[in-house]
Design a protein around this nucleic acid. Structure first.
Lengths: 277, 277
DNA sequence: ATCATCGTTCCGGCTCCCGGAACGGACGAA
DNA sequence: TTCGTCCGTTCCGGGAGCCGGAACGATGAT
């Protein structure tokens, strides 16, 4: 008796975003491959990317031949040495990142909170590096993670340093999804808050994205006042309480200013003499 | 049992890249895009990858649409936010890397030399992360950089932890190119030195790769004695002198042992092949 | 003003990418 | 042990879309 193929209506919305070109598919697989829950099985990668199984398999084979993925026993894959090398090179080559790191360490030491540096990708912020206190028993922030601009301190900070029309366009006209009961859902309200952020020099996220989590951030500006990213600290509300915001805010603002100044001043695109290769 | 004995040896590619598929070309462009001398002009990327100009342009356009590259004024490109996020995610997801970092910091503090962690990609070692002393006036090692196994301390360390046949295959039969006057060019001589490395627990590179540079390294072993990488220190010969090798060597060996133990013990992503004998 | 160089666009040819279907092995349940 | 299920892998014919030489406009140096 032929079993009916399980074609039940998926309860989960299909996120697949059918990429048109092979390069987009390759990027999708790479993105899935570096996710923290390694090693990855072929079926999982196919499900996550929404690509057909043979397609993912072929891409993984290509990656493996180039050293960007390494196949394990039982047909599971993980990030390969060349991918790790690429990642290390990319992070080392980013001048803002290289300059931000020591500032983040200093900021973490002086505030006791997790300090991080994020950059903007469209309407979301990507956390690129961070300095964690040893006492973090639960990490409210993951490296490489993303958070919408409208509900994060780093997001508001970067929005505040953008021209108003650009900020308005990024926020859109529709009501924004609520993450907590305190999320500011009205784009107009977010826009109205930006002048205050500009005046103070730092933005505060009061449980906008997650319950019991507060954050403070300030924008980092590169040459020509271009927004390069944002520096911020994150903590639970009962350690990063309302009173401390008044003293921590200026510290965050100063840290961001330090990075901005370093970006403008010292090391231009080619300030250093590199060895060969 | 078909064991994956895939030990691809050659991975060196020259400007006339023989990339057959579009995915390989995309990887080549990505690799060129993260190189330290940003921003990159289209013609440079085309020259570096050996690909035709329109092809590179099309790939960059695809990358830009996905946020993996960002076009600057005047038609130059640099790594985009998604690429930085991917890099951060990849490095954060690697358990060996996460475990190695604090050990490297400690090793650097106690030895005063640059400490680094490298993994193997075919017949070369890739430097994945490092902890630099502040006094480094010239960096003899770059993040994401590569060095052949046969002429580096980390290379010898990883070779020593491999089965002899595998090590022999990686070294090949031909005489190896000389990097300095002290480079060991005979594959047989390298193989003959490995038992000593195994016995002492660390390898020493006496100006094999570069003049006036000495290095010490020890292998890091994961579950099942699989080679996960190597921990090493690098310094100039007149600060990292011959007498200090005897005291620094065991420290490097101990550091590598710490990482190995942590890899085996604590935070295995999920113990899959625990029963495999 | 003139030219070399670069980034960008165009377009016809035909490569080789695509993914449904099938196969064999691994694992768990009965 | 046997059966059923699921997974990784391979195959293959059709046609989607990749390819790159050639051309065009912008830019900066001479």
């Amino acid at each position: 008796m032929p079993k009916p193929v399980n074609t039940s209506v998926s309860r989960r919305e299909e996120p697949p975003a059918a990429s048109t070109g092979p390069v987009d598919k390759a990027l999708a697989v790479l993105d899935a491959l570096v996710q923290p829950d390694a090693p990855h099985r072929l079926a999982d990668l196919a499900a996550r990317t929404g690509l057909p199984k043979p397609t993912v398999h072929r891409l993984l084979h290509t990656f493996a031949e180039a050293g960007y993925a390494v196949p394990g026993p039982g047909g599971n894959y993980q990030a390969g040495p060349r991918l790790l090398g690429l990642a290390a090179t990319a992070l080392a080559a980013s001048s803002e990142l290289r300059l931000a790191r020591p500032v983040l360490d200093d900021l973490r030491l002086r505030t006791g909170h997790l300090a991080h540096f994020s950059v903007r990708d469209g309407a979301v912020a990507v956390h690129v590096t961070q300095s964690e206190p040893s006492s973090t028993y639960r990490m409210p922030l993951t490296a490489g993670g993303e958070v919408p601009l409208y509900c994060s301190a780093v997001g508001w900070a970067m929005l505040s340093a953008l021209p108003s029309p650009a900020a308005a366009e990024l926020l859109g006209g529709e009501p924004l999804p609520a993450r907590t009961s305190r999320t500011v859902r009205d784009p107009g309200a977010v826009l109205a808050a930006l002048p205050t952020v500009r005046e103070r020099g730092y933005a505060v996220d009061d449980e906008y994205a997650e319950q019991d989590v507060r954050a403070i951030a300030a924008p980092v500006l590169g040459p020509g006042d271009r927004v390069a990213g944002a520096v911020g600290i994150v903590g639970l509300t009962f350690t990063l309480d309302e009173e401390s915001v008044a003293v921590l805010g200026p510290m965050v603002r100063a840290a961001a200013g330090t990075v901005s100044a370093a970006l403008r001043g010292g090391t231009g695109p080619l300030g250093i003499v590199r060895g060969q290769e």
